[in-house]
Design a protein around this nucleic acid. Structure first.
Lengths: 135, 135
DNA sequence: ACAACATTACAATGATTGATGAAGTGTTTG
DNA sequence: CAAACACTTCATCAATCATTGTAATGTTGT
């Protein structure tokens, strides 16, 4: 308890305990978001982080559509589309309304549209210069 | 080759060919983003779609930091942090600068900060009502 | 040049996840 | 009510992905 004061250098295996903290480490109050919200946001990103689902969102960004139409537009299986819609809806990215036999899906709010367009803008910017820093 | 003209009703397995298109299907010009950009944006979202990486971004949203400090702050392995930083940097979400022995990482631009906060806001909203539509 | 420190690259493993066809649910129409 | 339609759920399989220890690389200070 007391003798650990001496030679701390070999107390733990090498390269496991970094001793940096050379900047304003102590004075910064670093308040991270709640783990719960971090995870929720991550799930949201993951939902959007798949080409086919993202394309689906981009399609619905142009207006609501029903599953059959979506499947036809994207030339894909009904069950696949449905599966993707389910994932997106579970994240609150989509809402749906029924009209007769059809279910019409659309983006939940402008929030979603923002995320979508923001990311696509970022992606389009990178189109020209693939490597940003030549380090 | 020719006799398939009759009884089209059984020509293909049931429930594979939806015939919907009852809305303004033909008149809508549906212009989707380029597949290339869709995929790039998806990769970006996927990069952000993992709790540990997202937390890392949230940390850097409060200011730049070097790898050792990050590892200490998040109580995680150096190699894990480095790996995550690599993924995020590959997507142009982070930039870094060297100062002596240290590499300081920070968010690439406000673009990233926007995406981050936007999603966290969305996630925090859902905190109260977990199911949105009682359908 | 060498030792020490900071970071990265690699490879193995365990965990997630997306596609898919078949079966199930709910709605309208005859 | 039964058949047709629109869509969803389920179970399985293949592919992708994150973690982690260890080895390698790069940088600074002596």
């Amino acid at each position: 308890m007391i003798d650990e004061v001496f030679d701390c250098s070999l107390e733990f295996p090498l390269s496991t305990k970094p001793v940096c903290s050379h900047l304003d480490h102590a004075k910064r109050p670093i308040s991270l978001p709640l783990q719960q919200n971090i995870e929720r946001a991550a799930t949201l990103f993951r939902a959007m982080g798949e080409p086919s689902r993202l394309k689906l969102l981009a399609l619905l960004d142009q207006g609501e559509s029903c599953v059959g139409d979506i499947a036809e537009t994207l030339s894909d299986k009904l069950s696949s589309i449905s599966q993707r819609l389910k994932v997106l809806r579970a994240e609150g990215l989509l809402v749906r309304r029924r009209e007769g036999k059809h279910l019409f899906y659309s983006l939940a709010d402008n929030h979603v549209s923002s995320l979508l367009r923001n990311a696509l803008a970022h992606a389009t910017e990178l189109e020209t210069s693939d490597s940003h820093e030549p380090i």
